[in-house]
């Protein structure tokens, strides 16, 4: 296979699409390609859109994209939807709501299935962000799967995280819980023309005002209202994102956040590589399955056995 990286850097959409597929499939050459891509990354602003299913994430993404396009900014969109835990297949339906962005050569939309990854993103989403970044997209919008309460991986991938809520999905207690409710740089109450919207705005504002952890942050988290299908409030939403971006840059926080992200990413790459190598060694000789037989027969226990394996592993070297 030819090296796709130079073509991606020269702006070939086809090469970018193919490279994304390789990375998604964890092809043996993908690490090499990503390595070549890496020096060209770090220019795009990554905007994460998360929230429960049906709150309007895709429609908002479409409208935000339209605002950015009016400013002549180029946009890459990654829309994540779940894979079936039973068949591995997936129905990726976010594109339906992105009709306006469709057909604009400066908007690239890629649907991704989670392929068993928990946390709201696909495993390779951060790598796909890098590819779009290196390609030269000014903005990359990542729309997570419809999340419940605990899928917060988006914070690790995005510079600015928008949590989208809609009225009618639960009482005050929901807005008091941990997890997704804590990660927002911006809250958006979408479908704000429906009853209950103002009450929800109040609830979320109270959360923001009372949460010691959120309050301690130098950034004041705004709570905005939108009606995405009517294109109401999207302009102000993008302005609020601009504010956040400016805040990140001026406060020096962007540098800190990116340092922390780079550390996390490098660490998890290292962990993967170590576990791949070490597991090959341990599982290669078939003795592991004998051990499982011993554990089942109560001749050994898993806790002591694991400790023994690790000890022998390091005494060898």
């Amino acid at each position: 296979m030819e090296n796709l990286v130079p073509e991606v850097l020269q702006g070939s959409i086809r090469a970018m699409a193919k490279l994304i597929t390789l990375v998604e499939n964890e092809d043996s050459r993908s690490l090499e390609f990503l390595g070549a891509i890496y020096p060209h990354t770090g220019k795009a602003h990554v905007l994460g859109i998360t929230g429960s299913p049906g709150t309007g994430k895709s429609t908002l993404t479409d409208k935000i994209t339209a605002v950015l396009r009016q400013r002549n900014q180029t946009v890459g969109i990654i829309a994540v939807d779940p894979s079936s835990p039973f068949t591995g297949g997936a129905l990726l339906g976010d594109r339906i709501r992105m009709q306006r962005a469709f057909g604009d050569p400066d908007v690239f939309i890629r649907s991704m299935a989670t392929r068993g990854n928990l946390g709201g993103l696909a495993r390779s989403t951060t790598d796909v962000i890098k590819i779009m970044d290196a390609f030269g997209k000014d903005w990359i919008i990542v729309e997570t799967v419809g999340v419940g309460q605990d899928e917060v991986d988006i914070v690790k991938a995005a510079d600015t995280t928008v949590v989208v809520l809609a009225p009618g999905l639960g009482d005050t207690i929901q807005s008091m819980k941990a997890g997704v409710m804590e990660i927002a740089d911006l809250y958006v109450i979408n479908k704000a023309d429906r009853s209950g919207a103002d009450a929800l705005v109040t609830e979320v504002r109270i959360r923001v005002e009372q949460d010691a952890q959120i309050k301690a942050r130098p950034w004041q988290t705004p709570v905005l209202k939108t009606v995405a299908v009517e294109d109401q409030g999207t302009e102000s939403l993008v302005e609020a994102v601009d504010h956040h971006r400016k805040f990140l840059e001026e406060s020096g926080k962007l540098k800190k956040v990116r340092w922390e992200k780079t550390r996390q990413e490098t660490l998890s790459l290292l962990k993967e590589e170590i576990s791949r190598n070490v597991l090959e060694k341990i599982l290669g000789n078939g003795r592991f399955d004998d051990l499982i037989d011993d554990i089942i027969a109560n001749r050994k226990d898993p806790y002591t056995s694991v400790k023994e394996i690790v000890e022998t592993l390091f005494s060898d070297e």
């Binding site: 894979s83 068949t87 297949g89 997936a90 990726l92 339906g93 594109r95 057909g103 649907s111 299935a113």
Partner: peptide, 18 residues
């Protein structure tokens, strides 16, 4: 999707270009 494929549904009223 049930056969294990990843299916992007684009919706109604698509032009060939889209």
């Amino acid at each position: 999707a049930e056969a294990g494929m990843e299916v992007v549904y684009t919706g109604l009223r698509q032009t060939p270009e889209m």
